[in-house]
Each structure stands twice: as structure tokens, then as C-alpha cells.
């Protein structure tokens, strides 16, 4: 029983976060365009808008196209959500909470998130719709390509950290020792990790298919890609998983480069509860930057997307990896 409660905590967090993030996205987009966004539901700045939307989605008819492959079509959203939810088990939310402190945490996370590609292709193919299939094929190409620079930049962090356990990586980043005042975060420990972080950030934006890499969905050309035939709560779960995926990769970035739950002020404000707050703040900051980017940049073309990945990110990340290894050997 206790185990069950322990396991459901991240679920509550994800659902709460997704409701908040969708509202935030609408607010950010509105204010960037000098609008106000949802203002009516719930009183203060329409905070209950996403709750109302979710209640509406639950009531909607669950439509399955006649020629769709029913089983795959029905299960795709759940596979997608299960994959991103399973990955949360190795994220250290605070010094007192981690789902499973396994010593191959990073490897497990990267392996499980690869399932996301599978479920997107499942949904795309099972819809029996050419737009969906095109979107699914793009997703496959994109995610397979962008996993290489992600893994290379993660690998460069692991060279510095020397551990695959995310809890251990977080623990070694506590304290303020660099130059006397900077926190011991990995990004400050090695100058080449800044380059690694930039590559990592670009790749996670592509992996969580957000603008400017939102080709799988691209509502303006592919009519939402693999989501075209989905409606009601199944679509809602796709949405939820997408936002959960965004948070997951942002939190991974926070652990690998910005100290996880470590406080930026050394031992000041650093209990388990404060650790959780710091961790979520760091994660949400990246989520916010992704939203900010979404409403700034236009979408890449497929060939540009591939060109960026294969001709710039991958070579740079390999060279960077070698440089980081040399730096670690000499200092």
C-alpha cells in the first residue's frame, strides 16, 4: 500500500504540472502576442481553464476510424504515457525522494524514452491516415537522429560526474565551492560542458517535438500529424504525455547540468522540501524557455532539421566529448 502511494506521487505531480503547464503555455502565448489568454474560468486569470477543458475532454465521444487498427490505435496513447511516466522513476525529486535509485539511471531513462518514438509510430500507422503516417515517419527520423547528440552530450556529463546514478550525480553537485561563490553545478565545473548543455538543450527540444522542431505535429501542414484521428481523452493523454515528456527532459537537464535539487546558495535553503522546490523551479524554467521559443521561432524544414543534426550537432558533440575527456585528464 505504502509502495503504491509512493509510486503514485509522481503521477499526481505530472497531472498537476500538465494542467498548470497547459494554462501557462496559453498565458505565455497570449501575452507574447499582446493578448490576455483565458481570463474567465475560475476567477484569477482563468486558472481553472485547463481543468474545465479536461472535464470536457472526458465527456467527449471516443471516435475510432473504421479502417483503423483498433488495438494499436487504442493503446498508443497509453504506451506513450507509460513510457514517459516510467522514466520519472529514476528522477531524484529531492534528497529524500527518488522512485528507484538504480545505478544505471541515465541509461534506463534514455532507453525508456526511446519507447516514445514507438508509440508515436503506433498511433500514426494505426490511424490509417496519410497525414498521420507522414507525421509518424518524420517523428521516427527526427527522434532517431536527435538521440545521437542527446546521448553524446549526456555522455560528456557522465565523463565528468563518473556515475550513472542520477541521485549520486545530484549529491555531488551540492555546495558552493567554485571560485568561492558559484554552486558546484556540473555546468560550472568544466567550460566545455556549456557547449554540451547547448547541444543537449537543442536535442531535447527536438526530442519532445516542440517548435522549432515540431515537425511530427506541425498543425499547419500535417493537421497535427499522428494526433489527427485522435479525439476526446485519448488525445488528452497524448497532450499530457507530451507535456510530461517536456518536464522529464527538462528535469534531466536540471540534474545533469544545474545540480538537480541542490540549492544555488550552498547549505542555505537546502532541506528535502526546499530541494524539491529548487528542482521543480529549475525544470519549469527550461519548460518556460521552451514555451518562449515556441512563440518566437518558425518551424524548420525536414531537410534543414536533418542537416542541423547530422552536419552540426553530431560532429560538434563528438569533438566536445573528446575535449571534455582531455580536460578531465589534465585537471
Amino acid at each position: 500500500m505504502a509502495l503504491l502511494i509512493f509510486a503514485t506521487l509522481p503521477l499526481l505531480l505530472i497531472v498537476g504540472y500538465a494542467l498548470f503547464a497547459i494554462w501557462l503555455e496559453r498565458k505565455v502565448s497570449a501575452h507574447i502576442q499582446d493578448r490576455l489568454g483565458p481570463m474567465r474560468v475560475g476567477g484569477w486569470h482563468g486558472w481553472a481553464q485547463t481543468i474545465a477543458d479536461m472535464l470536457k475532454l472526458i465527456q467527449k465521444e471516443d471516435i475510432i476510424p473504421t479502417n483503423a487498427s483498433r488495438f494499436l490505435f487504442k493503446s498508443a496513447p497509453f504506451v506513450l504515457f507509460a513510457a514517459s511516466y516510467a522514466a520519472f522513476s529514476v528522477i531524484p525529486f529531492s534528497s529524500a525522494y527518488i522512485g528507484s535509485s538504480i545505478n544505471i539511471g541515465v541509461f534506463y531513462l534514455l532507453a525508456v524514452t526511446s519507447l516514445l518514438t514507438l508509440s508515436v509510430i503506433m498511433g500514426a500507422w494505426a490511424s490509417n491516415n496519410k497525414w498521420s503516417l507522414l507525421g509518424g515517419m518524420r517523428t521516427a527520423a527526427q527522434m532517431v537522429s536527435y538521440e545521437v547528440p542527446t546521448i553524446m552530450s549526456v555522455l560528456s556529463v557522465l565523463v565528468v560526474a563518473g556515475s550513472l546514478n542520477l541521485m549520486t550525480i545530484s549529491e555531488m553537485q551540492t555546495g558552493n565551492d567554485i571560485l568561492g561563490f558559484l554552486p558546484n553545478w556540473l555546468i560550472f565545473q568544466n567550460p566545455f560542458l556549456i557547449v554540451a548543455f547547448i547541444i543537449f538543450f537543442i536535442s531535447i527540444v527536438a526530442e519532445s517535438h516542440r517548435v522549432p522542431f515540431d515537425l511530427p505535429e506541425s498543425e499547419s501542414e500535417l493537421v497535427a500529424g499522428f494526433q489527427t484521428e485522435y479525439s476526446g481523452m485519448r488525445w488528452g493523454i497524448f497532450m499530457l504525455a507530451e507535456y510530461a515528456d517536456m518536464l522529464l527532459l527538462s528535469l534531466l537537464g536540471a540534474v545533469l547540468f544545474f545540480g538537480g535539487w541542490a540549492s544555488p546558495f550552498g547549505s542555505y535553503l537546502s532541506g528535502p522540501v526546499w530541494g524539491f522546490i529548487w528542482f521543480m523551479l529549475k525544470g519549469l524554467l527550461f519548460v518556460f524557455v521552451m514555451m518562449w521559443m515556441r512563440w518566437t521561432l518558425p518551424r524548420y524544414r525536414v531537410d534543414q532539421l536533418m542537416e542541423i543534426c547530422w552536419t552540426i550537432l553530431i560532429p560538434v558533440s563528438f569533438i566536445n566529448f573528446v575535449l571534455i575527456a582531455l580536460w578531465e585528464m589534465t585537471f
Binding site: 505565455v28 497570449a30 501575452h31 507574447i32 502576442q33 499582446d34 493578448r35 490576455l36 481570463m39 518562449w292 521559443m293 512563440w295 518566437t296 521561432l297
Partner: peptide, 21 residues
């Protein structure tokens, strides 16, 4: 150019909106 664009959007984010309710 990415940073230029993001600066522009940030400025608009902080501006009061023009919507009349």
C-alpha cells in the same frame, strides 16, 4: 537571430496587453 527574436518576444511578454475585455 534567435536571441534577437527571443528578446522581441520577451519585450512583448512584459508589455501590458492591448485586449479590451
Amino acid at each position: 537571430t534567435i536571441f534577437t527574436g527571443m528578446g522581441v518576444t520577451m519585450r512583448h511578454l512584459l508589455q501590458p496587453s492591448v485586449t479590451l475585455r
